[in-house]
């Protein structure tokens, strides 16, 4: 980022600027059908009213456990899945229900990185063909031909440009993820949605890819939405973090605020559940242990989704859904009894 207002600390990004991506009340309900006539008997509310903004040059982390809707959210933003409700506005264009033909030009600016570097690359195509495909699909003319452009991309992600003619199986897992990233970068996107970009990789390789993503962001002025279940990776890579649970955002804040003074009980529990690779302070950490598993998104708890596992839950949590409100500057929480908050109860 070169603009003067963001030259300082990352957290001081001016909120008055136009967001690159604005998501409002986004929802995706997958119908559940039964019987011969495929009667709809219910819906999996994978994403159920999610709102957030992503500003240019920042990284928003989406964390949560399985079934929280983070992956679906990523697919809704990039319109791989058609939203049931709400809106997605990208660079001022409302793309919520835009037709595929009208959305195609916008796809250049909005790319996705997937988790599995083994299955997301076509094993019969060379690396050159894979990374060069976006040029062909979008019909883009490159200055010195596609081959040159692809080789530049390979070099950019730390691969040997000479390996242009090799096949995916000749590369290791980490290198394959680099190939995936190179393909993503081909069209110089503005926004990249990365769904579990490192979770299939070995520990030592994860760090390489995390560093690469950070370097590329600095070099190419990219904006990221990173979806991951690993809270440590998300803390490292994100500027702001949204914690999701059963299709809802529970808490959304700058990363330091979120990790050091979490306000939602679920965030507190989530953070205290992560094992720390250190022996100092072993046994002295405060532990919050949740009972049971995440409830099924087919039949989520009424009102506050977390009320069935929350130790603070009261009658009001089971009857009135807490709205996502800004309890502190740039710190939104959806809870009736937030943690780390002066005992001024709303309402």
């Amino acid at each position: 980022m070169n603009s003067p207002e963001s030259a300082g600390e990352a957290a001081v990004k001016a909120p008055t600027r136009e967001p690159l991506l604005a998501v409002t009340g986004l929802a995706k309900h997958f119908p559940v059908t039964k019987g011969l006539l495929k009667r709809q008997v219910g819906a999996v509310k994978a994403v159920d009213g999610v709102s957030f903004e992503v500003f240019k040059g920042e990284t928003l982390g989406l964390v949560g456990e399985s079934g929280c809707g983070k992956t679906t959210t990523g697919r809704l933003i990039t319109r791989l899945v058609e939203p049931t409700g709400g809106s997605v506005v990208f660079e001022g264009h409302d793309i919520t229900h835009m037709s595929q033909s009208r959305i195609r030009p916008l796809r250049r600016d909005m790319q996705m990185i997937f988790q599995d570097p083994y299955s997301s690359l076509n094993p019969r195509h060379t690396v050159g063909a894979i990374v060069g495909a976006p040029f062909r699909i979008q019909g883009i003319k490159t200055e010195h031909g596609i081959k040159k452009a692809v080789q530049e991309l390979l070099a950019l992600v730390g691969l040997n440009p000479e390996h242009y003619n090799r096949y995916p199986h000749e590369f290791s897992g980490g290198q394959r993820q680099r190939i995936g990233i190179a393909r993503t970068l081909a069209l110089k996107p503005k926004l990249i949605v990365a769904d579990e970009p490192v979770s299939a990789l070995d520990v030592s390789i994860q760090a390489q890819v995390v560093n690469l993503l950070e370097d590329l962001q600095n070099e190419l002025d990219l904006t990221y939405v990173v979806i991951a279940h690993d809270l440590s990776v998300v803390r490292h890579i994100s500027d702001r973090v949204a914690v999701m649970y059963l299709g809802k955002i529970m808490e959304l804040a700058d990363r330091r605020d979120l990790y050091e003074t979490p306000r939602h009980p679920y965030t507190t529990a989530l953070l205290s559940a992560v094992p720390i690779p250190d022996t100092r302070g072993r046994g002295s950490r405060t532990r919050v242990r949740l009972q049971g598993d995440v409830p099924s998104p087919l039949n989520p708890p009424a009102a506050c989704r977390f009320s069935t596992r929350c130790w603070k839950a009261d009658e009001i949590c089971r009857t009135v859904e807490p709205p996502l409100v800004e309890l502190a500057p740039r710190h939104q929480v959806a809870c009736h009894f937030p943690e780390n908050t002066p005992a001024v109860q709303p309402g």
């Binding site: 980490g174 760090a207 995390v210 440590s232 803390r235 990790y259 953070l271 690779p277």
Partner: peptide, 23 residues
């Protein structure tokens, strides 16, 4: 290995220290 792992309990300002190459 230690340098490759981002830490949950610290606000990091540094890049990770990965191991080069693959297993």
């Amino acid at each position: 290995l230690l340098g490759s792992m981002p830490r949950l309990d610290r606000e990091s300002t540094e890049r990770l220290l990965p191991i080069k190459g693959s297993p």
